[in-house]
Simulated assay, not measured.
Amino acid sequence: MTEHNSELLSSMVVKRHRDGRRRFDAKAKRALVEQCLQPGVSVAGLALEHGVNANLLRKWIMRYQQERDGGSTAALPAPVETSALVPVATLNAPPRRPALRLQARLPNGVELDLGEATTDEVSSILQMLCRLPCSVSTRG
């Protein structure tokens, strides 16, 4: 930490409230914000170095930029206008599920061929097949 930063850190907190909140000096806040606006400076790093929450420091930076720009909100992104209406065609369209093809040839010669099936259909058939007793285990 440089000598300038240690001076800034000691002069930042003007008052400590009983509930833990701190009141910061306006000049020290401005100096810290101006440091943050230098190219290549990490806002989170400076916040950590000066014992200030990074989100609070970002709030100070936004306020500083608004004051500097004459109170305009040009630095803020414009809100995106969205329509509250949704096209009805998309609500009525059935969900598209990928079609699966299932083919199986069992050792006893039984062949199972499901042409095009949905995932639900394939899942149901596989569950049913898993419940059947195995022919090897039924031989006595």
Score class of each variant (00 low, 15 high):
residue 2 T to G: 01
residue 4 H to S: 13
residue 6 S to W: 02
residue 6 S to E: 11
residue 7 E to F: 07
residue 8 L to A: 11
residue 11 S to H: 12
residue 12 M to T: 09
residue 13 V to R: 15
residue 16 R to A: 10
residue 18 R to E: 06
residue 19 D to P: 00
residue 23 R to Y: 12
residue 27 K to D: 15
residue 36 C to A: 12
residue 37 L to R: 08
residue 39 P to S: 08
residue 41 V to M: 14
residue 52 V to Y: 13
residue 53 N to R: 12
residue 54 A to T: 13
residue 57 L to E: 04
residue 58 R to G: 03
residue 58 R to W: 03
residue 60 W to M: 03
residue 61 I to V: 13
residue 62 M to Q: 08
residue 62 M to W: 01
residue 70 G to A: 06
residue 75 A to N: 08
residue 76 L to I: 05
residue 76 L to Y: 06
residue 77 P to A: 14
residue 78 A to E: 15
residue 78 A to P: 02
residue 79 P to I: 00
residue 82 T to C: 06
residue 82 T to A: 09
residue 84 A to V: 11
residue 84 A to Q: 15
residue 85 L to F: 14
residue 89 A to L: 11
residue 90 T to A: 04
residue 91 L to K: 09
residue 92 N to C: 07
residue 93 A to P: 01
residue 99 A to R: 14
residue 101 R to C: 10
residue 104 A to C: 07
residue 104 A to E: 03
residue 108 N to T: 13
residue 110 V to Q: 13
residue 111 E to R: 14
residue 112 L to D: 00
residue 114 L to M: 09
residue 115 G to K: 08
residue 116 E to W: 12
residue 118 T to I: 00
residue 119 T to A: 08
residue 120 D to G: 08
residue 121 E to N: 05
residue 123 S to T: 06
residue 125 I to H: 15
residue 126 L to Y: 08
residue 126 L to D: 02
residue 129 L to D: 05
residue 132 L to F: 11
residue 132 L to V: 04
residue 132 L to Q: 07
residue 133 P to L: 04
residue 134 C to M: 09
residue 138 T to D: 00
residue 138 T to W: 00
residue 140 G to I: 00
